[in-house]
Every structure is written in C-alpha cells, then in structure tokens.
C-alpha cells in the first residue's frame, strides 16, 4: 500500500468508527426512550421508537457495506483487518440493542393499563440505566481500544444480572399478594429479560474489542483444549 492509499484507508476506518458511535448513540437513545414510554404508558412514543428502528437498521447495513468494501479493496492485515472485523460484529450487537428497545416498546403495549408499584418502577428505571451504561462503556472501550475496560464489562454486567433476579423476585411477591395479574407479570418478566440481553450485547462488544486489540477470542480457549485433545488422541493412536 502506498502512503496515499493508507492515509485514505485510515480516514475510511475513522469514518466507520464515527458511524458506529452514532449507531451506538441511536441505540442507547432508543433504549432510554423505550423505558420512558414503558413507565409513562405512552403508546404513541412507543410506536415512534418502533418506527424509528428502520433508521438504525439502515445505518447498520451501511456500516457493514462500508466494511465489506474496505476488506475487498484494501485487503488489510493484522490489526487493520481486526478493526474491520470488530466493526462488523459490534455493528450487529448495537443493531440488536436497538431491536431490544423495540421489544420493550411492544411490551409497553401488552402491559398497557397496568399500575406498576413504586418498587417495580424503580427497578425498571435502574435496569434500564444499568443496561445503557454498559452499552456506553462498550462504545468507550471500542473508541479507546481499551482492552482493560473491555474485559471488565463482563464483571460490571453482574450488577444488571442481580437487578434482573431482584425484579423477578419482586414480581413473584406481587403475584403472591394478588397485586399483579399473571399476563402483565409475565410481560414484565420478559421486559426485564430484554434489559438483561442489552447488557449481554454490551459485554459482547467488550469481547469484540478484546479481539480487536489482542487477536484473542473467548472461543480460542475452548478451541485450544480441543486441539490439545486431538493432538493427544493422534499420538495415542496405535496406527
């Protein structure tokens, strides 16, 4: 690659990064608005978020195509190659987070008219904040290529898992006291699961960033064990 093409290649990489930042911002905004719509029982706002998801999808497709173009035309190597692969994967994770915001909106419709207790409202708001905070940290780790932060996301996610468990517990208690019908209780449990999934996608972003920086993937550990077994199997083979 000449200096000139490399310069434009890195500019192209920067613009892919900016697009991912904007996709992340759109996804977290959609998540925050979905939570607000759920707590307010605002069906109009919920529908607007569902309609707005097309824009996220279009942005994700555009990023992917840009990445494919870069792969085909520049044939990058080493960390440049991993940057593009990570970008494709992270885009997919963010796009899924947007989809989960839509799922929360659909849940808003299904629980419409249900009075939430203060405890339930508080936990929903907290799960939302936590899930979106994780997503933002994931984007931070990606932009800074910060392997340490990326690796920490899994542990940070524990708090969201705890909140999720607490929430389900509270739902069961409310059911026991006769304060919540079965149908909305089930829907709320599903909504809680969506927040938890958003957290998981944020953790995945962290994994992609670790791959970007070091070339290491979590699956490599398992693959190494399998190779080791095969090697031993072959050496123990009498033939």
């Amino acid at each position: 690659m000449t200096e000139e093409t490399r310069r434009t290649f890195h500019e192209d990489l920067d613009s892919v990064r900016d697009q991912i930042i904007q996709l992340g911002a759109s996804a977290t905004e959609a998540g925050a608005r979905a939570t607000q719509a759920l707590l307010d029982g605002n069906l109009v706002a919920a529908q607007a978020i569902i309609d707005g998801d097309d824009r996220l999808d279009a942005a994700a497709v555009e990023i992917e195509e840009n990445c494919q173009l870069l792969l085909a035309l520049q044939q990058p190597m080493a960390i440049d190659l991993r940057r593009i692969l990570a970008a494709i994967w992270i885009t997919a994770e963010l796009e899924r987070i947007g989809d989960l915001a839509c799922n929360i909106c659909k849940g808003t419709r299904r629980v419409f008219g249900t009075e939430f207790s203060p405890r339930v409202r508080g936990l929903i708001a907290e799960m939302s904040d936590e899930a979106l905070r994780l997503t933002r940290l994931g984007v931070d780790a990606y932009v800074d290529e910060d392997e340490g932060l990326a690796a920490a996301l899994d542990d940070i996610d524990d708090r969201l898992d705890t909140l999720h468990a607490d929430f389900v517990q509270v739902l069961l208690e409310h059911r026991g006291e006769g304060g919540l019908d079965l149908q909305p209780a089930v829907q709320l449990a599903l909504v809680a699961r969506y927040y938890e999934r958003i957290g998981d996608h944020a953790v995945n972003i962290g994994e992609r960033v670790r791959y970007l920086v070091t070339g290491w993937k979590q699956e490599h550990a398992g693959a190494a064990r399998e190779h080791e077994r095969l090697r031993r199997g072959l050496s123990e083979d009498p033939a």
Partner: peptide, 11 residues
C-alpha cells in the same frame, strides 16, 4: 468529539 447521545447532534 462526542461518543454518546451528543453524537446524534453531530449527525
């Protein structure tokens, strides 16, 4: 230089 919500302003 925004990374989060404010990036939408930039867009």
């Amino acid at each position: 230089a925004a990374r989060h919500g404010e990036a939408l302003v930039s867009r």
